[in-house]
Structure formats: C-alpha cells, structure tokens
Write a protein that binds this DNA or RNA. Structure first.
Length: 250
DNA sequence: AATTTTTCCAACCGCGCGCTT
DNA sequence: CAAGCGCGCGGTTGGAAAAAT
C-alpha cells in the first residue's frame, strides 16, 4: 500500500483511510456520482475525482466481491482473455462483482503463467520439464484450483471431501500405466509417453461415451490434441458428464 | 531469528474517446 | 471544425505481506 501524501497542489494521494472511505461511501450513497470531478469537493475529500472513482469502483461499491476467485471465474477469465485480449473492462462485465483492475491483477499474478505454460509453453515444457513454468503453474494450480489444474492435476489425496466434485473422475483414466490422479506433473515427467500414447479411459463404457479421448493416437494430431485437452480441462475434471465436440468433427 | 527475495494488491499515470461548447 | 473537459481504460509502480534463504 502506498503511504498517504499530499502532492504539490494539496491533493491527497496514496492509501485511503477509513474516514475517507466512509465519507466517500456516504456521499455516493446519498447523492450518487454524476460528476467525479466535483464529487471530492462536495464530499469533503482532498482527493482528485479520478482517485475517488477508482476507490469506489474497485473497493467501496456494495456489489464488489472480494476474496478468492472460483475455478469457474478463472476459467471464464482465461476464455474471455483468449477472445478479447487485454480488454479488462469488457471481461469485468461478464464477472459480476469483479472490477477490471482486480481481474487485471489476478491475470498478471496467477492466470497468465498458466496460459503461457499451457499454450506457447507446451513445446517448452516438452523439452524443459523442470523449467520455471512447471514450478509456477504447479504452485498455483494445485490443489485449490483443480478445475483448471487438470493439466497440472493435483494429487487427489489433497482434495478434501467437502471440495466440489473435481478431478474425482481422473482416477478413471490412465496414461500408460500411470493414473492421472497421481498428478499430471508426474505424467509430464514422462514426456515421451505423454505426447505419444493415446489417452484412454479405463473402462469401455467411458470409451463409448468419449471416443475423443483416443484422438491423440495419431502423432500428427498431437499438437491439436494437446490444446484440445487444455481447452476442455474442465470437462475432464467434472466427472465427464458431458464432453465437448470432437475437434475432428468441428 | 534475521535478512533477502518474491508475490500481489491497491493505487497512480497517461492516453484516447466522446461529449459539449 | 476545433478546443476543452471529464471519464474510462489499460499499463505500470509502490510497498506490505508472505515465502524463501
């Protein structure tokens, strides 16, 4: 937090005090915020209008949601960022209670690393299994964010009974001899196998329902299939109730 | 326990757009 | 049409807290 100080025009900057927050909140609740520039003057604040606006939008407004992001929110942000790029305000409109600034911060501190690893980073991971990407991604995506963490699937023993039904289904799958539930990073460590072996459900009923899981049997399809896996990680972690369209048919 | 490094949130800054005059 | 103004957006930074050494 920046320490409070006054600039050369006598405008206060830096961290907001409780009193300032209360003044701003009380004023906006009573009179609204039709003119940010005039607002601080009438509210008895030595702040600039811009600073008041930011404080209100990011922190004080009642609908603002604080605290941890759900896996669903993370996934939506990643998806929207893929579509729209750094249009944080646009993305924020799709996440009620989250401000553009907050989403931007969350992106830079958590999600960006994951996306870099899972897309551009894939070839890097293949050749550098113990690189930075792996460590950073694994740290964030296990075990509290297992929905996105399929690619970095956590050890199932770390997932409490009360957790949402995440990755439980993963135990139904194997990579060669390895269960996904043992942690995909362990699997990634056997990269040769990972990128060349078909991804097979353990039982035939799953195979019938999800023929796409055998999609990577052909080496030429591996690149496409790896993005496919990442893109659809949520389905793989949600008990496979519904599987997306086979990319070959799209 | 002390020190250093890293992480990440809150806030600042500058630019561009749209509206008004 | 141009200038001025206010607002919103996205990039960047300061610094406290947490983690690592």
């Amino acid at each position: 937090m920046r320490s409070p100080y006054y600039d050369k025009n006598g405008v206060k900057r830096g961290a907001w005090s409780k009193e300032e927050d209360e003044k701003l909140r009380a004023f906006i609740e009573r009179y609204g915020h039709s003119n940010w520039r005039q607002l601080p003057k009438h509210a008895g604040l030595s702040r600039c209008g811009k600073s008041c606006r930011l404080r209100w939008l990011n922190y004080l407004r009642p609908e603002v949601k604080r605290g941890n992001y759900t896996p669903e929110e993370d996934e939506l942000i990643i998806k929207l960022h893929e579509q729209h790029g750094n249009k944080w305000s646009l993305i924020a409109k799709r996440l009620p209670g989250r401000s553009d600034n907050e989403i931007k911060n969350h992106w830079h501190s958590h999600l960006k690393k994951h996306v870099e690893c899972s897309h551009g980073g894939i070839s890097e991971i293949k050749t550098k299994p113990s690189g930075t990407c792996r460590g950073e991604t694994a740290k964030y995506f296990e075990p509290e964010n297992p929905l996105l963490g399929f690619a970095a699937a956590s050890s199932s023993s770390n997932i409490s009974e009360s957790s949402p039904p995440i990755c439980n289904s993963s135990s139904a799958f194997t990579f060669g001899e390895e269960s996904v539930a043992n942690g995909a990073w362990e699997i990634f460590e056997q990269f040769d196998d990972f990128w060349t072996q078909p991804f097979m459900p353990e039982n035939t009923s799953d195979q019938d329902h999800y023929p796409s899981l055998n999609y990577a049997a052909n080496a030429a399809d591996l690149d496409e299939y790896s993005s496919y896996l990442f893109d659809n990680a949520e389905f793989l972690c949600q008990g496979l109730q519904e599987f997306p369209e086979d990319p070959k048919n799209v």
